[in-house]
Design a protein around this nucleic acid. Structure first.
Length: 654
RNA sequence: GGUCCCGUAGCUCAGGGGAUAGAGCAUCUGACUUCUAAUCAGACGGUCGCAGGUUCGAAUCCUGCCGGGAUCACCA
């Protein structure tokens, strides 16, 4: 039994013995004692006033006496305004520390025999990875590590969107404009190389589109639209948008972030522009030459045309090579990759099964639907009238395939919160199809990443590239490292490795510490901070321990048993360490890496303060010295494991 | 418009029924002959979006409103 359970048990007995009532652990409010008061755990006695018909202070007093008498490890108590603060005996903490200080895996739970699959990253192959992918990857990796620590067997996968019109655009642009250039011939990182051709396609297409807008055909279409009701609606919408933009601009000027003579002049609120913006897809599909060529290429790909497939393979391989470099820099890897080119036709047998079991119905036009209105969702199409698959059809099939591949009872999808509805629908359908893993599905949704200047928009070129960002934090860490001379004694190679560890700790911690479901603002300047509530701050606590342990050498730690009176700061850290295993379980249950990040920070903070206030190697007694070395080691172990659950490595020095 | 997520210090975020709401950044002030100062201590900074309700007790739970975002395709 844990000390917390012992106390709860004691409280239940106390209530029974003192007031003759039966309560359950759920009726007890217990927290760790606030720093400003003496004690380790606090029982709130207000809820018992009704049962005892006494004042909180009286209850606390009686209960405190009872617990000290009846619960072995409760040494003393004090009462403040109805709060019963309990102190755990020094010997309990000493024994706890004795048990864990040498255990580098303390906090890791034994295998629970369950298997979980985690899907994350899941990029498209037409563009390099960006900041949004980084949040996804870090959350996915971290969630995987946490689940593993909580006892699950974890399978890490991604689904790669390697097919479709987007990659065809890159392929076409490369074929038309590259003159045989390759990543090797240009020296450009290979996924960026492919992305450049995607961008080039969009440029050429825009040029073509602009040109077309002046043709008679285009002007006639515009004139027709201008006479329609939609144009009236659009006019209102534009007027509203203009007013809103003006208000924002005024606010910025008032705040002094923009010069007083700023205007909205550059913005085009004309109806013509509005129309052609909305008409873009139709133009692409019906009028554009480049659009026709790209669609032809997709058709050829679907027919299995050899040269097209060869080009597709070649360009996708470039992309994977580039992605792998980025994954390696981030320190993540996958157990299996699923490719949409293999899975996009899956799910049709599940549609059949669903029809047979009346989970789906067929409309007159042949399309197949699920009626989810009784689950407060809508009707959802799962197959087109021409018998082809939809996105969700593929997801149904892929889920089933994964179950066949791995026999998992849980599946976690790390996907941005814009797809919340999609996953509600997907999970509901899988439940109705009675898939065996249907109750173990979870969508780990996370909010978009904004920049201090606003949303990332590819059209405006404000997307933060993953590789650039990593390079930037490494550079910052290098500069900082050079300003100190702490690494002068070691090889350049080791220095590099450490600088990398520090840089990535800064970046990763900055992102993971935020609760996943929250939209977050990513300030590049703050993300490279190495001080304060940051990854390097936590690393530094670890490094301090390592340094002390190096200096301490092979000391005999057995005198620790003679350490008599623990300091408040020591007890605080012990209580933190004590809570770690349960935190791992909670974080796994909530799929919440930010909880681990915040814990690591709090523990590091407590250690930094302790380190400043007390001497370890020069402690007054051998007992204190041995005890503090044990404590330091335990803290280091937990920090190292905790941070590893976030995908962050700990350097030995920094 | 329906549904979902978010609103806490100037900024970035913790806390998710209990004590006087906490950190970091920024600003200011102190602490390195002593285990790594990537550290520590202090000052400054709050109508926890607003209004009701439940409760001995609400930043936390409920309802309504306001603000921000997402989503509501035989797209992915």
């Amino acid at each position: 039994m844990s000390i917390i359970e012992l106390i709860q048990d004691g409280v239940i007995k106390a209530v029974k013995s003192l007031y003759g009532a039966d309560i359950s652990p759920a009726d007890i409010t217990m927290n760790s004692t606030r720093k400003e008061f003496e004690g380790d755990y606090t029982v709130v006695t207000f809820p018992f006033t009704r049962i005892a018909r006494k004042k909180p202070d009286e209850i606390a007093e009686e209960m405190g006496q009872f617990l000290v008498r009846e619960v072995t490890h409760i040494q003393q108590y004090n009462v403040i305004k109805g709060f019963l603060n309990l102190s755990v005996s020094d010997s309990f903490w000493r024994q706890f520390l004795e048990e864990i200080h040498h255990n580098e895996q303390f906090g890791r739970q034994p295998a629970n025999g369950q298997k979980v699959l985690v899907e994350f990253s899941s990029p498209n192959t037409n563009k390099p990875l960006h900041l949004g992918h980084i949040r996804n990857i870090l959350l996915g990796w971290s969630a995987s590590q946490i689940l593993e620590a909580a006892g699950y067997e974890v399978v890490k996968v991604q689904i790669v969107n390697d097919r479709g019109i987007a990659i065809c655009k890159s392929m076409l642009a490369w074929e038309k404009y590259a003159n045989g250039a390759t990543p090797a011939s240009t020296g450009i990182k290979s996924d960026h190389f492919v992305g450049d051709y995607y961008v080039l396609f969009e440029q050429k297409f825009q040029e073509e589109y602009k040109h077309w807008q002046h043709t008679e055909k285009a002007q006639a279409l515009l004139a027709g639209w201008l006479a329609s009701k939609e144009a009236l609606k659009a006019e209102k919408e534009l007027a509203q948008k203009r007013a809103k933009d003006q208000k924002e601009l005024d606010a910025k000027i008032a705040a002094g972030t923009l010069p007083d003579d700023s205007t909205l002049q550059d913005e085009d609120y004309s109806l013509g522009k509005y129309f052609f913006k909305g008409f873009k897809d139709e133009y692409f599909n019906q009028y554009s030459t480049l659009g026709a060529e790209a669609r032809t290429m997709l058709l050829r790909w679907e027919e299995g045309d050899e040269p097209t497939i060869a080009l597709w393979r070649r360009m996708n391989d470039w992309v994977y090579e580039g992605f792998n470099e980025t994954y390696e820099k981030l320190g993540v890897h996958f157990d299996k990759l699923y490719f949409e080119s293999n899975t996009y036709l899956l799910g049709k047998d599940m549609v059949e099964k669903g029809l047979a079991e009346r989970v789906f119905y067929r409309k007159d036009d042949g399309s197949v639907w699920a009626d989810l209105t009784d689950a407060k969702l809508d009707h959802k199409a799962v197959m087109r009238s021409d018998g082809t698959s939809l996105y969700i059809t593929q997801d149904l099939g892929t889920a089933h395939l994964r179950y066949e591949d791995f026999g998992v009872e849980k599946m976690v999808y790390v996907v941005a919160d814009e797809q919340n509805y999609h996953f509600q629908v997907l999970f509901e359908i899988l439940k109705r199809l009675k898939e065996p893993y249907a109750n173990g599905l979870h969508h780990l949704a996370y909010g978009m990443v904004d920049l201090p200047t606003g949303k990332m928009k590819s059209r405006e070129g404000t997307v933060v590239d993953a590789d650039d960002l990593i390079a930037e934090v490494v550079e910052e860490a290098r500069k900082n490292s050079q300003e100190r001379d702490t690494l002068s004694g070691i090889s350049a190679e080791e220095q590099n490795a450490i600088v990398n560890q520090i840089a990535l700790a800064a970046l990763k911690f900055f992102i993971i510490k935020v609760y996943p479901q929250k939209r977050m603002t990513f300030d590049p300047k703050e993300s490279v901070d190495l001080q304060g509530q940051t990854g390097p701050y936590v690393q530094n606590a670890y490094v301090r321990v390592r340094s002390v342990l190096r200096k301490g050498g092979e000391l005999d730690l057995s005198p620790a048993t003679a350490y008599e009176k623990l300091e408040a700061q020591e007890r605080e850290m012990l209580a933190q360490l004590y809570a770690f295993p349960e935190l791992v379980q909670t974080a796994a249950g909530d799929y919440d890496p930010s909880a681990i990040a915040n814990f690591c920070y709090d523990l590091a903070k407590a250690y930094h303060r302790f380190y400043h206030d007390y001497s370890i190697l020069n402690a007054d007694t051998e007992a204190a010295k041995a005890f503090r070395l044990q404590l330091s080691r335990a803290v280091a172990n937990v920090l190292k494991l905790g941070m590893s659950l976030l995908g962050i490595e700990m350097p030995e020095r920094m």
